[in-house]
Computed example of a mutant assay.
Amino acid sequence: MTLHEKLAHIDKARELRSYHTEPAQMRAAAPGKVGELRLGFMLRNGRSVLHDLYRVTPLLVQRALYWDEAMPELPICSIISVGGGILQGDRYKIDISVGEGACAQVTSQGANRVHRMDANYASQYQAISLEDGAYLEYLPDFTIAYRGSRFINETDIVIADNATLLYGEMVLAGRKHHHAEERFGLDLLSMAVKVRRPDGRKLFAEKILIENGDPTIDFAAVMRGYDAFANIMCLTPPETATRIKARFATKFPVEDARALSGISRLPNAAGLMMRAVGIETRDVRKEVRHFWQIVREESCGRTLPEEFLWR
């Protein structure tokens, strides 16, 4: 499916039915508002390298760096947004592929800010593929949905049976320290993931949908009054998933805890899902990092480097 076909498909999503007005400033999906990024990693002379790079602003990756002291063979790419955040009418596509036996990490330069909107919406489509024995950590920073914003993200994942993917979505409930009405003051946040094998066999699908005024958002089984959450899935072979699950202790329920977290098995022996909620982003990051470290140690025999002081 081409980019235009996928964008047209997303445009028909039921939750977007009220958000098709054209912005007065520049029409939706106009030149300069359609960002594309393609990253391809492969083994070359026994080393994982970024062999394929295509970018269209406002999305940018400059080059792969090897700065992880605990895993120096890991090429790391940071996605840079030169547009200052996501605006109404923006349409993004990100395509990441990791070849047989290769490894990579993809992250972002900082939080993904979805600005306030008075017309239309913003969308992002992601395609991720991992071949035999591949390993990918795709952990973008927090998405911050401003008051009145509308953002839909769809991710299609194709992964081989013996590959490992650590994929994360982290969300902060608006600019909580800016204004009281910012907390879940968004109009729409939709995040969907579909996972299948290379032969087309479907493993599972998941969708998170938050709409303005949803009274269930603070139910005990949802946010429970917390302001940040993370859904981190580890798609990995069953034996690796078993070892990871044995090491990760559930933190729930704990009174007055700054964060709660736990893991569960995904359908069709696809791997594990870690979910966490916390008061601040740093509280959720701590839970994510703990899970991330266990995943890397059990999948690659490597650990994480020490955290940067400013994190």
Results as ranks from 00 to 15, higher is better:
Thr236Pro: 12
Gly225Glu: 08
Ala249Cys: 10
Tyr226Met: 13
Leu235Thr: 05
Asn212Gln: 08
Val222Gln: 12
Ser264Leu: 02
Met233Phe: 13
Ala259Asp: 08
Phe229Ala: 08
Thr216Cys: 12
Ala259Phe: 09
Ala249Thr: 10
Lys251Ala: 12
Ile232Tyr: 08
Ala257Gln: 13
Ala241Asp: 10
Ala249Met: 02
Ala246Cys: 13
Thr242Cys: 06
Ser261Gln: 11
Pro238Met: 07
Lys245Ser: 13
Gly262Gln: 02
Leu266Ala: 01
Asp227Lys: 01
Thr236Ser: 09
Arg265Ile: 03
Lys245Ile: 01
Leu260Ile: 12
Leu235Gly: 04
Ile217Gln: 09
Ala257Lys: 12
Cys234Gln: 06
Val254Thr: 07
Arg247Gly: 00
Phe229Asn: 05
Thr240Ile: 06
Ile217Ser: 05
Asn231Val: 07
Gly213Cys: 02
Ala249Ile: 00
Arg258His: 09
Arg224His: 09
Thr236Gly: 11
Asp218Ser: 10
Pro215Asn: 10
Arg224Tyr: 14
Ala230Gln: 15
Ala228Ile: 03
Arg265Met: 13
Lys251Asp: 15
Pro237Ile: 00
Gly213Asp: 12
Leu235Tyr: 03
Ala259Asn: 14
Tyr226Gln: 05
Asn231Ser: 13
Gly213His: 04
Val254Glu: 13
Thr242Phe: 09
Glu239Cys: 01
Pro253Gly: 14
Thr250Ser: 08
Arg258Asn: 03
Lys245Pro: 04
Thr250Tyr: 10
Ile263Pro: 02
Ala249Tyr: 09
Gly262Pro: 06
Ile263Glu: 02
Val222Arg: 14
Pro253Leu: 01
Phe219Pro: 08
Pro238Gly: 03
Ala228Gly: 08
Ala241Thr: 07
Val254Gly: 07
Asp214Gln: 04
Gly213Lys: 00
Ile244Pro: 02
Arg224Ala: 15
Leu235Ser: 05
Ile244Trp: 00
Thr240Asp: 00
Met233Thr: 01
Asn212Thr: 04
Met233Pro: 05
Ala228Glu: 03
Phe248Leu: 13
Arg243Phe: 04
Glu239Thr: 07
Phe252Thr: 02
Asp218Asn: 15
Ala249Asp: 13
Ala221Cys: 15
Thr250Ala: 06
Ile244Thr: 10
Ala257Thr: 08
Asp214Glu: 12
Ala257Trp: 14
Gly262Thr: 04
Asn212Pro: 05
Gly213Asn: 03
Arg243Val: 05
Ala220Thr: 14
Ser261Ile: 04
Met223Lys: 14
Ala241His: 06
Ala228Gln: 13
Asn212Ser: 11
Phe248Pro: 11
Asn212Tyr: 01
Pro253Glu: 06
Glu255Gly: 02
